[in-house]
Computed example of a mutant assay.
Amino acid sequence: MADQPTAPAAPSGLAIVVFAGGFDRVHYALVMASAAAATNRPVTLFFTGRALLALRREDEAGAPGWHGLDPADDGSAPAERDRFFTGNGLAGFDELLSACVALGVTVMACEMGIRALGLPSGAPLRPDVPVTAGGVVTFLNDAPKGGAMLFV
């Protein structure tokens, strides 16, 4: 009997570069991260560009920073799209981000991205999300070895 070829091993972890600032893209990056973490894979989310707005603290009126993300793919405002998702039994933005935190996902904020957006050093980020500041080298060193890397 001939030896059967072995299937390649599944990636052992997941690293996601979240650089697009559209609500649907950032929301789905959180879906992917929380699902991977729930299946015991190490996950790193690296936020840069306009996606960094997802990590901003609430504004003076109490609106979450992610409300400042770019419109969803259907043109709706982030808050409106989130209400649509939750109204249809899907996880909302804050629920997914909280799940990522609870499941031990590493959340990184790109220092270059923060400067490129003109945000002050030590930008006011969400207090409920432990965020590691760093650059691309930090991200690459932290990304799970042998894992998959996605760009969203």
Rank of each mutant, 00 (worst) to 15 (best):
A2C: 14
A2M: 15
A2L: 15
D3H: 12
T6R: 14
A7P: 08
P8D: 08
P8R: 09
A10M: 04
P11W: 09
S12Y: 00
L14W: 05
L14V: 03
A15N: 00
V17R: 14
V17P: 05
V18I: 13
G21C: 07
G21Y: 03
G22S: 12
F23P: 03
F23N: 10
F23Q: 06
D24Q: 08
D24Y: 00
V26R: 00
V26T: 04
H27M: 10
Y28P: 00
L30K: 01
L30Q: 05
V31A: 04
A33F: 11
A33I: 10
S34N: 01
A35F: 12
A36Y: 04
A37C: 07
A37F: 02
A37S: 04
A38Q: 08
A38G: 06
T39E: 05
N40Q: 14
N40G: 02
R41L: 13
A51V: 10
A51S: 14
A51D: 11
A54S: 05
L55Q: 02
R56V: 00
R56M: 07
D59C: 03
A61K: 12
A61Y: 07
G62A: 03
A63D: 09
A63G: 05
G65T: 03
G65K: 14
G65D: 13
G65M: 07
W66T: 04
W66Q: 03
H67S: 08
G68Q: 04
L69F: 05
L69D: 10
L69G: 06
P71M: 06
D73R: 12
D74H: 03
G75Y: 10
S76A: 11
P78N: 10
R81Y: 09
F84H: 11
T86I: 09
N88P: 07
G89H: 01
G89T: 06
F93N: 04
E95I: 09
L96S: 10
L97D: 07
L97I: 01
S98W: 00
S98Y: 02
A99K: 11
C100F: 04
C100Q: 01
V101L: 06
V101P: 00
V101S: 00
V101G: 02
A102I: 08
A102R: 03
G104V: 10
G104H: 07
V105Y: 11
T106R: 13
V107G: 06
M108N: 07
M108V: 08
C110M: 13
E111S: 15
M112I: 13
M112V: 03
G113H: 03
I114L: 04
R115I: 00
A116L: 14
L119V: 11
L119D: 02
P120Q: 11
S121Q: 04
A123E: 15
P124Y: 02
P124V: 02
P124T: 00
R126V: 11
R126H: 03
R126D: 00
P127A: 15
D128Q: 01
V129F: 08
P130W: 09
P130Q: 05
V131P: 12
A133G: 12
V136M: 15
T138F: 03
T138P: 11
L140M: 11
L140I: 14
N141V: 10
P144Q: 09
K145C: 07
K145Q: 15
A148Q: 12
M149P: 01
L150H: 05
L150F: 15
F151R: 15
